[in-house]
């Protein structure tokens, strides 16, 4: 028993000592690498979807069946929270103009697959693609 305890203690001290700088560098480096890889995978994969759902302040503002979009068009959304202009195409939606402070929504590019949505936090606006039919 004593030897096992001693060994366990050795493992604890060697790898698990929370007072050691090295432990935390290893833990956080692992988190960093795994999370970055996970996000890149999420961003570039995803199920094909055809229904775009636009929400403002938690309410569904508009549902668009992208299959029915033959000619690309723009849509302006003006609410009490602010103004965003969406560019709607057959293969996805992007934000092309907005009067928010940081314009992060515009730099997020085109959302074309079910997965990571576009979000404009100051205007409480989200655009996501859902897989399946418009009723789903």
């Amino acid at each position: 028993m004593y030897r096992i305890d001693k060994q366990a203690g050795f493992i604890y001290n060697r790898f698990m000592n929370i007072k050691s700088t090295k432990t935390w560098i290893i833990i956080f480096a692992a988190v960093l690498i795994i999370c970055t890889a996970a996000f890149l995978l999420l961003k570039h994969s995803g199920i094909q979807g055809t229904t775009a759902v636009i929400r403002v302040n938690g309410e569904v503002y508009e549902k668009i069946d992208l299959n029915a979009v033959a000619v690309a068009y723009d849509m302006e959304i003006r609410t009490e929270f602010g103004y965003n202009k969406l560019h709607i195409e057959h293969d996805g939606i992007s934000v092309i103009d907005a009067d928010c402070r940081d314009h992060i929504c515009m730099s997020q590019g085109k959302v074309s697959k079910a997965g990571v949505p576009i979000v404009c936090l100051p205007h409480k606006l989200t655009v996501e693609i859902e897989g399946g039919d418009i009723d789903a």
């Binding site: 970055t36 929400r55 079910a114």
Partner: peptide, 22 residues
């Protein structure tokens, strides 16, 4: 953000937010 926008797929931002927090 998830509560306010009621968009649960925002959860997919968790990994990148975690990485940036580190």
């Amino acid at each position: 953000a998830i509560i306010i926008t009621k968009t649960s797929s925002l959860m997919l931002y968790a990994p990148v937010l975690l990485a940036s927090a580190v």
